[in-house]
Computed example of a mutant assay.
Amino acid sequence: MVIHMQQKKENDNIMNYDTVRLDDENNAIIIIDQTKLPGSIELIALKTAEEIWDAIYLLRVRGAPAIGVAAAFGIYLLAKQSSASDYDTFHEEFVKQKEYLDSARPTAVNLSWALNRMQGVLEAHAGEDVSKIKGYLKAEAVEIWQEDIRVCKKIGEYGLTLVKPGDGILTHCNAGQLATSKYGTATAPIYLGEEKGYHFKVFADETRPLLQGARLTAFELQSSGVDVTLICDNMSATVMKNGWVNAVFVGCDRVAANGDTANKIGTSVVAAVAKYYNVPVYICAPTSTIDLNTRTGADIHIEQRPAEEVTEMWYKERMAPEGVKVFNPAFDVTDHELIAGIVTEYGIARAPYTESLQEIFKKREQESGR
């Protein structure tokens, strides 16, 4: 259900809108429909399990952290509206809804991470009054949302130590505010640097076939006053060869225990080119995106998307011949050997990642108890 829509105006800044927020009074999650950007800003109210699932699958809400927040709010709202009065029935309904939402997108670990965290709260209060458990679930969902904001800011602070004023930064896809609750992951150093007067020069890959870099990253960076230049995906080598890029910052949807990372398709190409031109590649990832149970990138399930995203989306007429075979993976895996560092909210992990990521998790446990 569209609750508000307006065409983008000169004085209408996308950064003034929450990517995801809870409307508890109306039993809804309010999201920006990112498939409509940058042409128009539409806020959508999601109320049913099917609407939440569709919004995640169809990329109306996207970006690993934002998906996690949406899932947490979503499973809370579905549980809140349950008529079950006994714990066992309530738990059974919760698990069924959780598994349904978890099937929306397989690669982004934050989806299952947030849902598992919510289930942990439910089971920590096993046998208690259902109405009280609903309150605990709401508190946890709000904490996941607020935690995302804190985490992104810390990633930005650590990331900012890797660059200097005036540097050129290249980013791929959208790991900005539109992918999180605030600041973004890969863009967090850029936004914090802008506040400090660093005046970075940012290059945003358009990111085919869904153009998240063109439609979203370029849009939000420009709206924030950042010096951003949009380039086609196959232009990254040229800007690096010209010496215009000092660092690459990208987000990711899953980090394996050995430091391999799954991110939007094309990231591994950028990383390989950057390695050739001696440009460091930094993965900006909250610890919720790090999956130590996944040994290497080869173990990450890569989502396959519909052929139409390649052959006809964004075109007035179909641009590929009828019947042609299409391979459309949503993500690729960047080998850990191409990565200079993984920036988390608890510091920067360096090779060997099998050791440094373990240290990051030890630090998280010491500081947060999680």
Rank of each mutant, 00 (worst) to 15 (best):
A104Y: 08
N242D: 14
V310L: 10
I14E: 09
A307G: 11
V142D: 01
E206R: 01
V151T: 14
I133E: 02
A285E: 09
A45W: 00
K153I: 13
P65V: 09
G243W: 13
I155V: 15
G120L: 03
P352V: 10
N278Q: 13
Y315F: 03
G156M: 04
I67G: 02
V69N: 09
A298Y: 00
Q146C: 07
E25L: 13
G266Y: 01
I67P: 11
Y57Q: 10
A298H: 04
I190C: 05
A237R: 14
V269M: 04
V310I: 12
M118Q: 11
G369H: 05
D23F: 08
V228A: 04
D24P: 00
E359D: 13
W113Q: 07
P165C: 02
V121W: 07
I348R: 09
E303Y: 08
I29D: 01
R364T: 10
R370S: 11
E337Q: 13
E309L: 10
S288T: 15
N258V: 07
E157F: 03
S224V: 06
G341L: 12
V248I: 15
L230G: 10
Y191G: 07
V250P: 02
C173E: 01
R21H: 04
V163K: 01
E355P: 02
V250S: 00
S288R: 15
I144T: 05
I75E: 02
V281L: 15
A71P: 04
A272E: 12
A84M: 09
E42A: 12
I29R: 02
N258R: 04
Y76G: 00
V163H: 03
S131C: 00
F73R: 03
V333C: 00
A45F: 03
F90K: 04
C232S: 10
Y353E: 05
W314C: 11
A237E: 14
L162A: 14
L192P: 06
L292V: 07
K362S: 11
L59Y: 11
C284Y: 08
W145F: 15
A72G: 11
A340W: 06
S236K: 11
I44Y: 06
L210R: 15
S368R: 13
Y76Q: 06
L292S: 09
V279S: 06
V239Q: 10
V343A: 01
D18R: 12
I169G: 05
W244G: 00
D12P: 06
A256F: 08
K316I: 10
V310T: 08
W244N: 08
D227F: 13
H172R: 00
K47C: 10
Y276A: 14
V61N: 03
R318I: 14
N13Q: 05
A285M: 14
V226F: 11
Y76F: 13
A330S: 02
N242K: 15
A175D: 02
K132Y: 09
G369T: 12
Y158D: 05
V310A: 10
I342V: 07
N110I: 13
A104P: 00
V310F: 06
L43Y: 04
L170C: 05
Q81C: 09
V121Q: 10
S368G: 01
A126R: 15
Q358C: 06
M15H: 10
A114H: 12
